[in-house]
């Protein structure tokens, strides 16, 4: 009974939604023009990076805070057992992980650098580095993280990107208004923030996996 009602409601909802989307008049506000007009002052030449780090830098600041909160929640809810000692995985997989990791780190660095003028940036670079860490863990080369025993260096990397971003925005608030970069230093500030964000995002995204994982790659 519930099933039939929900399916009927979903069909009606979907139909109305699609109807609304197809009939929607074009929006009176075109943000493309606003973005294009201000690109010269943004410090970067790739519009998506300009929106993320400059025009809507506020969103990105809050986003990294949300990610940290999610990670802290996950550490609190995660497994209480300490991770088992690493067991070496299949030799071939381990070799592959050893060969693949250095180029992946280079790709991460390139994506961070490329974000200023073409598709790429801190998010993609962080995600690629996190994927490399997950690969290392699955091949038994990097042990899972223990939420109870977290070395200071790891904590610094986890919160570093957020703290750096926050400090820069507070400093800018003292100088004028929140996250309004002076046009001449904008490019440098964005690169600095993005570098911090890349490291923190890589650690946080990898942490989402490494704090939870209590399997070692080798054992089935």
């Amino acid at each position: 009974m519930k099933r039939a009602i929900v399916i009927a409601a979903a069909l009606v909802f979907g139909g109305l939604l699609i109807n609304a989307i197809v009939d929607l008049p074009s929006s009176p506000v075109d943000l493309r023009i606003a973005v294009a007009d201000n690109m010269a002052n943004s410090g970067v030449s790739h519009p998506v990076t300009a929106v993320l780090l400059n025009f809507r830098g506020y969103d990105t600041l809050l986003e990294i805070a949300v990610l940290l909160l999610a990670l802290i929640g996950l550490m609190a809810a995660g497994p209480m057992l300490p991770p088992p000692p690493n067991q070496p995985a299949d030799a071939l997989l381990q070799k592959l992980a050893r060969i693949a990791t250095p180029p992946v780190i280079v790709v991460g660095g390139y994506l961070l650098w490329a974000g200023a003028f073409r598709p790429g940036g801190a998010f993609q670079a962080g995600a690629v580095l996190a994927a490399a860490m997950v690969l290392l863990h699955l091949s038994g080369l990097l042990s899972a993280w223990n939420a109870q025993l977290l070395p200071l260096a790891r904590r610094v990397i986890l919160v570093g990107g957020f703290v750096l971003f926050l400090c820069i925005s507070v400093a800018l608030l003292a100088a004028g208004s929140l996250l309004q970069y002076p046009p001449h230093q904008a490019g440098l500030l964005i690169l600095l923030i993005e570098s911090g964000l890349t490291l923190s995002l890589a650690a946080i995204l990898a942490g989402l996996f490494l704090f939870l994982s209590r399997d070692n790659g080798g054992a089935p």
């Binding site: 943000l31 493309r32 519009p47 929106v51 809507r56 998010f123 995002l201």
Partner: peptide, 25 residues
């Protein structure tokens, strides 16, 4: 349009964090 691109990029990263938290719970 770069503005929704940036929003969705943020959204994808937040979605994976939310998924990981849900899986932990």
């Amino acid at each position: 349009d770069p503005v929704p691109h940036a929003m969705v990029l943020t959204g994808i990263v937040v979605a994976v964090a939310a998924t990981a938290l849900a899986l932990a719970l």
